[in-house]
Design a protein around this nucleic acid. Structure first.
Length: 416
RNA sequence: GCGAUCGUAGCUCAGCUGGUUAGAGCAUCGGUUUGUGGUACCGAGGGUCGCGGGUUCAAGUCCCGUCGGUCGCCCCA
């Protein structure tokens, strides 16, 4: 229990944004939505809250995310529910339980908050936000190309700069390929277990593929000499990967082969990818995804091939240039009390005409003009009495086009 | 879960080897001045020094714990 405090504290790992931070955040979402529409991905909404089984089953009970990072609790109906730690599971659940199957193949996009109980650090929060894109019910390589082109175009429009994020691409092949490769890896790593780090030795029986992206330097020689998947690809799997890479080249998407990029869970097939950056410290992954043909059907669902990716909004927001802040067009100032209603009338007319407008009619009348100046508007309309005479002035650049007509200004500001 | 580092006013910070009623700039509010694209001066409000305990005649300062921020490990978006 937190100790009683006079001022409430935010929950650890959550954040509230204002100003430039909020602008960055929404610039990422705006770009996503723009590109989304152009690629024909349908906008969908799925719940933040799902039955715990939705995530536990699809993500694998032994995953770190499921075993120790989920916000899981019993609701008042004594049902175990979980705040989503990712989107894919909920999207698939909706596909199955909301009758979306009849619309397949579906290109879907959504975004929103996701939750993971982790130690916060740079680019990592307990409540964080993701962009998500999925193609469900499409088994062919063009779907992968479509999905990756979407991600690539999004990054281009965010103007991260050349080389800021590179696409690392790999194939995990079909189940036959994967099983053969896995066996070969197991054999390779078992024979050299004594050279492996403690972490990697633990992975050996649980998931030998994960040793491939071990960060322990001591593992690197063993990893470098490990068998590569290309030697195990079935002709079908090799053809699928070739279609993806040819498609990407045709679409003008730059990529790099990453033969050690893997996914731990068995339902991943064929395409696996990450957009990586070195500008975010330890959290280098900005977009990650892959093909998960085996997910929906396990343990008992219709065979449903699918590909998808998720992106971290906060991570992208940290990488983009600061967006232009919304510029105030007009500040209307009443520099004495009896001119307030006139100022209100002018402001109302300007806002109805579609202009962004702030009203400055409170506080010390003599300081109101300075207050207006600090709002940094394009124009200032001020109403004042000077030497007992009503003085109306419009100041600022570019007045002609957006200006309230002079006569209209006079009429409105004379409101009694 | 592990490690490092930091918590003083709304913000950015100062505060010496512990020593009177804890300071500055900015911001806010008020007064005078100026009189139209960030005037100048004066004044006010605002802090149980993150929280709890300990050492001491005396703790913002030293010690322990705890909560939080930041960065890294792990994992991931």
């Amino acid at each position: 229990m937190p100790p009683p405090m006079t001022t409430p504290q935010p929950v650890r790992g959550t954040q509230s944004l204002i100003g430039e931070d909020a602008d960055r955040f929404h610039a990422v979402i705006a770009a996503f939505d723009r590109v989304r529409a152009r690629f024909g991905f349908r906008r969908v909404e799925v719940p933040v809250l799902e039955h715990t089984a939705v995530f536990a089953r699809t993500m694998g009970e032994t995953t770190d995310v499921v075993s120790k990072e989920m916000y899981t609790f019993e609701d008042k109906g004594e049902e175990s529910v979980t705040l989503r730690p990712e989107f894919t599971a909920g999207m698939c659940r909706a596909y199955l339980s909301e009758g979306w199957q009849q619309l397949a193949p579906l290109k879907l996009a959504t975004h929103g908050p996701t939750f993971r109980y982790e130690r916060p650090q740079k680019g990592r929060f307990r409540q964080f936000h993701q962009l998500d894109a999925e193609v469900i019910g499409a088994a062919e390589a063009p779907a992968d190309v479509e999905l990756l082109s979407f991600a690539d175009q999004l990054l281009k429009e965010l103007e991260l700069g050349i080389g800021a994020a590179v696409l690392k691409l790999n194939t995990l092949g079909d189940p036959e390929t994967r099983a053969a490769w896995r066996d070969a890896l197991f054999e390779h790593f078992s024979s050299r277990a004594s050279d492996l780090s403690e972490d990697s030795r633990a992975r050996l029986t649980r998931n030998p593929l994960q040793i491939l992206d071990s960060k322990a330097h001591s593992d690197w020689p063993v990893v470098d000499s490990a068998p590569v998947i290309d030697d195990f690809l079935t002709p079908e799997a090799a053809d699928f990967f070739a279609q993806v890479t040819d498609g990407l080249s045709a679409a003008g998407v730059r990529w790099e082969r990453a033969p050690r990029l893997v996914r731990g869970l068995d339902y991943y097939r064929h395409t696996a990818f990450e957009f990586i950056t070195d500008t975010l410290g330890a959290q280098g992954t900005v977009i990650a995804g892959g093909r998960y043909d085996g997910l929906v059907e396990s343990p008992r669902g219709p065979h449903t091939p699918a590909v998808g990716w998720a992106a971290g909004i906060e991570r992208l927001a940290m990488m983009i240039d600061a967006p232009q802040p919304e510029r105030l067009e007009v500040a209307v100032v009443a520099e004495s009390q009896e001119l307030r209603e006139g100022a209100i009338a002018v402001t109302a007319a300007l806002r109805r005409a579609g202009m962004t407008c702030e009203l400055v009619i409170s506080g010390n009348p003599r300081k109101r003009f300075d207050k207006a100046v600090k709002l940094n508007p394009t124009q200032i309309y001020s109403l004042s009495y000077r030497g007992g005479v009503l003085n109306k002035s419009q100041r600022g650049a570019g007045a002609q086009k957006t200006d309230l007509d002079r006569r209209e200004f006079d009429r409105r500001s004379s409101y009694q």
